[in-house]
Design a protein around this nucleic acid. Sequence first.
DNA 1: TATGAATGAGGTTTCATTCAT
DNA 2: CATGAATGAAACCTCATTCAT
Lengths: 215, 215, 215, 215
Amino acid sequence: MNEKTVEEGPRKPLTPRGERTRGSLVAAARVVFERDGYLDARLTDITAEAGCSTGTFYTYFTSKEEIFAALMEATKNEMLHPGLDHVEGDDPAAVIEASNRAYLEAYRRNAKLMRLMEEVANIDPKFMVLRQQRARTFVERNAQSIADLQQRGLADPELDPMMASRALSGMISRLAFGAFALGDEKEYSFEELLYTLTSIWCNGLRIDHQLSRKD
Amino acid sequence: MNEKTVEEGPRKPLTPRGERTRGSLVAAARVVFERDGYLDARLTDITAEAGCSTGTFYTYFTSKEEIFAALMEATKNEMLHPGLDHVEGDDPAAVIEASNRAYLEAYRRNAKLMRLMEEVANIDPKFMVLRQQRARTFVERNAQSIADLQQRGLADPELDPMMASRALSGMISRLAFGAFALGDEKEYSFEELLYTLTSIWCNGLRIDHQLSRKD
Amino acid sequence: MNEKTVEEGPRKPLTPRGERTRGSLVAAARVVFERDGYLDARLTDITAEAGCSTGTFYTYFTSKEEIFAALMEATKNEMLHPGLDHVEGDDPAAVIEASNRAYLEAYRRNAKLMRLMEEVANIDPKFMVLRQQRARTFVERNAQSIADLQQRGLADPELDPMMASRALSGMISRLAFGAFALGDEKEYSFEELLYTLTSIWCNGLRIDHQLSRKD
Amino acid sequence: MNEKTVEEGPRKPLTPRGERTRGSLVAAARVVFERDGYLDARLTDITAEAGCSTGTFYTYFTSKEEIFAALMEATKNEMLHPGLDHVEGDDPAAVIEASNRAYLEAYRRNAKLMRLMEEVANIDPKFMVLRQQRARTFVERNAQSIADLQQRGLADPELDPMMASRALSGMISRLAFGAFALGDEKEYSFEELLYTLTSIWCNGLRIDHQLSRKD
DNA sequence: TATGAATGAGGTTTCATTCAT
DNA sequence: CATGAATGAAACCTCATTCAT
């Protein structure tokens, strides 16, 4: 899987000083983008936040798009979430719950970044591709897990694992977006959210479970 | 429910000619927005498409935002989808399937408009509010339907109807967006999509069903 | 001969007002270019001189290059000079003298423009092409005239008319450039210049003559 | 004759290393200027070509202009051409032909440099002065030679030697520019060029000759 | 002497919006 | 009501030059 669809300028070997400046620009970009949104962010806001001059920006990046790509690259690990198969355990429902909990927590932690990614993906096709690639990773992991459960006779064999995974993965990401990125959080209790998603996930696949709400 | 959160300029009574001009502007806006996207659309593109002059635009609208709002208003009926309770019948699964089919078909028909709405909602909070309002209508209708099924003993009573509806409604809209708005349609068979969504919907609520794929 | 090598933006049919504004911009461009040179001229200098705003510039032109092309087009008739064959008369030497006199006078009148053309031609290949095209017109006319004199037995038949014309036409334009465009005019008496050029021209082609200096 | 009109930075005594670095910068400047033109050449292109850092440039030069002056100084001998009086011989026409041949060959060898000089002279008055000084050397030598021929009764005594030299010297440099610097060379045969120029030169001064084309 | 990151003035360019006709 | 030229704020971007190491 080649995540380099969104190009970043030829990264010449950097001196430590250059490394630092570049880093401060990416950090500043995160602050400014999260605060003002992608469109409203001006390059001068970013350099001001980074404490350097406009010209310096162009030492490391050629455009707003490119520094955004760099920011996405720099933060890609922050949304790492285990996926079903990375949670150990014998009880499928417990595994699913743990996985969903991890996902929701990661989403909540990175809500602003996710919000931002959504804004940019809907503006620039290059980043829609990136978003889809990352989503696909998540979807495929879950599809694999569903297929395993089917093989072990623990999940409805009628469903296409990939399609079911798309539906369920989409369900959780959408709800997380609504709950955390849009800041409608007041309407949602985290545990209620988790319970509902996990119930539907398990029921949807016809997985036996004894889930209950936590408060 | 007040849908007027997104203001439209004081609609002075229009002469028939004015009515026509305004209409051609909205129609042109749809063409241009769907073709170029909201951000890349220039007002002069719209007036050119409408066959009128730049100045005329301001007779009817005060900004790009406002004509977009007018376009949303003009097309709001195009995504009208029945919601569960609007489909008659005794078999809940059949009702759900019919409802989902109607939703997917409407989404497919209006894919470009939905894509556009997503773009703008992620740019402009006013339109995020509008999008959420419309989603809420859909969610609430489905929640009502779920509550009904619970009362009739046909659906899992443990689930909060509103939360379950958010999850399931989000699931279907997300999948429709991916399938139709992003043009990844090749990866999806419509009937497979429908079957998967409806199965998970019914299973998720523990509704008895005998669904089968159509080809 | 297609002189449209240097493109000018699609000239939409202009309203009289637009015609006037465009004209004032071209006139302003001439003032500013002649005063400051092509490179040092800023678009804002031109719009300021034309009495309009920066934005207006872009209603008519897309770049400095383009307005320069328009200026060249607008002034192309100012350097029209008869060429040998357009001067009537039986005495070839008198004809050549009259032609040279007309050329030098036109050059002197348009010295700043010629200076400008030279600057730009040496910067931008598109305008070198234009300069060469215009020179070629002059060269070809003179070549024709030389061929005629050869046929009438009045000029050295050994010389290739085209090559001889290139040499003699180049001689006069170079001297005119030095005398008038560079402002070394003090070193040159117009009549001395004319006498020398015409003598060499006639002698060079072995045309009989009784030229004498005027003072 | 003071050729130092175009200043060069105070040339501090250089270490051998410094000498080498400076030399590589001038050599790089020639490559880059000839390749990209004066205006499009960036100092970083030159330092990159020279294999040193940006900062090093300022150890030896203070500006693009100055390194260009240094390049002109370094290459001034490359266009050395004998001038009429430096060719030995009794037959004036043969001397003129040899001189012209030497000039044309030197021009052809240094065509890019001459092209460059022309570009810069038309941009920067300081270099126009330099160009004129060098031309003047050539013109004056030729004027001296013409005066000698007049004194020996071999050339038309009516012509002012200086003015005639300006005309004839300009003729040859213009034609050389067109033929070699602009790369229109295909249209010109070297020998035809030489024959025409020399014929007109001799005829123009009424010098007896028996010139013939070589092939 | 060499390095190369940092600087920032000053130009270009866009396009939503105004307004005289 | 319609016109479309004029407006100008606001952003972008370059690259010669400086300077701390």
